[in-house]
Design a protein around this nucleic acid. Structure first.
Lengths: 220, 220
DNA sequence: AAAATAGTGTCTATAAGACATTATGTC
DNA sequence: GACATAATGTCTTATAGACACTATTTT
């Protein structure tokens, strides 16, 4: 039986691209604008002290990757709950971490007001991806991989719904699509396209300075 | 600076799901039937001696994952060349390898008669996936992940063309689609659907006991 | 009435699926 | 002519995009 401990090994980390949607409170007579936010931590130690990074950490020898992922997430941000996540990509370029050889298995996590405990520090994705925002290691690349993956999955899955609560209005859903796809969609066409996924709850929003909106839920 | 060597680490392997398409020579008056084949090795040592496994091996501490992948592929099967590949998934269940904690980063590789050196032992995928065929570890699961991924990508990418040579006939291409999607397609409709991807070379096949066929190539 | 957004309807272009029909070679 | 497969055409239905128009609330 081969001795798998006879050679020096790379280190393995797991990192989470955690996303949520937040409301930009503007004029109360107008509709809420939504934007994407990402959960980041600020590095307290070298290397790259002070830089922002995805929450995550080293996987121990007899620790399951996803168990590790969730443990580190809770430990470093306080965030926990039963939310949607999926594996994204394994980045292992030789010099991606100055400490030595570190391979990162990254995940996407999507939460809403019902699926997590509202802890952690969230940053507008737009700011984070702007030039000048100092992300550690290759974490900006990983975030880009996540957005690209989500944009693809929007077309043929119901991932987007994980960013909204179980009951929602169509215009919020449309905004989520627009944010991830990074382009404007035509309301009536969007409505028709997603009508196959959703069903009305029978309730309407109230209190706004414009026509009330039907509240929907995800079908089946 | 954190000492990343202060804890015991999992082992990391990389495994390749290498696929090709082969002709089943039957009646020479009839059209070639194609089938998928997968490149496997037979384990010479315990654990799971005698079982079949995906080619691959342990990633050394300062070895790039994909460099390792290609080196192990060549070392264990003789296969090399410039062919299409993409990362598939990272499987890291706690007890997937009896030797200890081993995490596998798997890849899909697609070759044709032009893109590799024709070495290695290839097995009909159908046989390999049948009950009773003894694959080591979770490698059968990984193969399933690969087929599922390819089936998805057929719809919106040109991955399938990597399994054929640069010049091909439509019916071969259709068979590749049918093999991966595991369902029959209607010829005229398939032709129309892929016509956007391909262009005629101007040549035709000859020598068969039926109507000659236009030879195409991938557009752009 | 004005402002703001929700929601419906219509027209067009494009794509998918089913399938009949014709074409072109060998034996 | 029979056989085998290639290739074209047609019809129907579904879907995407553009956009005009109507509806419903608050101020």
């Amino acid at each position: 039986m081969t001795d798998i401990h006879a050679y020096e090994k790379p280190s393995l980390t797991t990192d989470m691209v955690m996303l949520r949607v937040a409301r930009q409170t503007t004029d109360s007579n107008k509709k809420d604008k939504l934007h994407l936010e990402i959960l980041l931590i600020r590095r307290k130690n070298d290397p790259q002290k002070g830089f922002y990074s995805l929450p995550g950490g080293f996987v121990a020898v007899n620790e399951d990757i996803e168990t590790c992922l969730m443990a580190k997430l809770k430990e470093k941000t306080g965030v926990e709950g039963k939310f949607y996540y999926e594996q994204l990509y394994t980045n292992g370029k030789l010099r991606r971490d100055p400490r030595g050889r570190v391979i990162s298995v990254s995940y996407i996590g999507l939460v809403n007001d019902e699926t997590y405990n509202k802890k952690g520090t969230w940053y507008p994705l737009e700011n984070v991806m702007a030039k000048g925002f100092q992300m550690a290691f290759d974490h900006k690349i990983i975030i880009n991989q996540a957005i690209e993956r989500l944009a693809n999955k929007l077309e043929y899955t119901d991932v987007a719904f994980n960013l909204l609560t179980s009951e929602f209005i169509i215009s919020d859903l449309q905004q989520v699509f627009e944010l991830i796809l990074n382009k404007e969609l035509v309301g009536p066409n969007f409505r028709r396209k997603i009508s196959q996924w959703i069903e009305p709850t029978g309730n309407k929003t109230e209190g706004q300075a414009y026509r009330p909106t039907e509240i929907f839920r995800l079908k089946k």
